[in-house]
């Protein structure tokens, strides 16, 4: 049987644009240009490499997000993924990470998986906990934040560079993996890949298809609540001097004035 690899990818607002919150204090995903989270490109890359090492493998990319999130799936398909699943339902809007993990877990289960490869964090929420939650919900080992990963003989192994130590990890499949941006450059879609992606299947699912009630997700089904969001006041313009030979000493003077020296 072929190795079933599932890659959850997120459609996120472009970090180089003006990101903001909507009136309901959820991330504005409508008026800001979005794209496949750059950190999920690393997950797609590692999934494709794992598939390449296997005798036979199918890589499915899954996203939970609005209509435009399809762009993220297209990009992943053009990189080389085989098929895509798009979970789209108005009731999902406003879901926090625990609610999102429910939807993704059901979608991954429905797709069928041996290994799930996530990114290390989304570039908008930046929580970096969804892969752990997915493992919890699916009841399989979590092998996360890997800078190196390989799958062979039904075992996933990898290197995790933690705060205090570097660890070598190992778990039996099925498992949930996440990979960092240290895992290796992601490939660019080739022209051929982009053309091929147009013909690849994208399955659409809603909450009914996944057997999830509207009250389990969205703003109402989330277990956290954003009470307010305020733009940080711009930093007051500081002093910028040109170095005319005394720049280092001027800087020292400033630091001394601030009691750092």
């Amino acid at each position: 049987m072929s190795l079933r690899i599932v890659v959850p990818v997120k459609f996120v607002p472009d970090a180089t644009g003006e990101r903001r919150f909507g009136d309901d204090l959820t991330v504005d995903r409508e008026d800001v240009d979005g794209l496949l989270s750059e950190l999920d490109e690393y997950a797609v890359e590692q999934a494709l490499q794992i598939a390449g090492e296997a005798d036979d493998a199918v890589v499915t990319v899954v996203t939970v997000g609005p209509e435009d999130a399809r762009d993220a799936l297209r990009k992943a398909l053009s990189m080389g993924a085989d098929k895509a699943v798009h979970v789209e339902d108005d009731d999902v809007h406003g879901s926090d990470v625990i609610a999102t993990s429910l939807v993704l877990a059901k979608a991954v289960e429905k797709t069928g998986f041996d290994v799930v490869v996530c990114g290390m964090a989304s570039t908008d929420g930046t929580m970096g906990v969804l892969p752990a939650l997915l493992a919890e919900r699916l009841g399989v080992p979590q092998v996360t934040l890997l800078s190196e990963v390989s799958v062979s003989g039904g075992v996933v192994s990898g290197r995790r560079d933690g705060d205090a130590a570097t660890e070598r990890l190992e778990a039996s499949l099925p498992a949930v993996v996440s990979v960092t941006d240290q895992s290796g450059e992601a490939r660019y879609p080739s022209f051929k890949g982009i053309m091929a992606a147009k013909k690849k299947p994208v399955e659409s699912l809603d909450l009914d298809d996944l057997g999830i009630g509207a009250d389990e997700v969205g703003l109402g089904g989330s277990w956290t609540l954003v009470e307010s969001a305020a733009e940080r006041p711009a930093r007051t313009a500081g002093t910028v001097v040109k170095d005319e030979g005394e720049g280092g000493r001027q800087l020292a003077e400033f630091l001394a004035g601030q009691k750092f020296i």
């Binding site: 970090a15 990101r19 919150f21 956290t224 609540l225 954003v226 009470e227 940080r232």
Partner: peptide, 14 residues
């Protein structure tokens, strides 16, 4: 902090 610290939010667990 959100969006590279350009926003500050207040949240609670419900």
């Amino acid at each position: 902090s959100a969006f590279a610290a350009s926003f500050t939010t207040k949240s609670r667990v419900s």
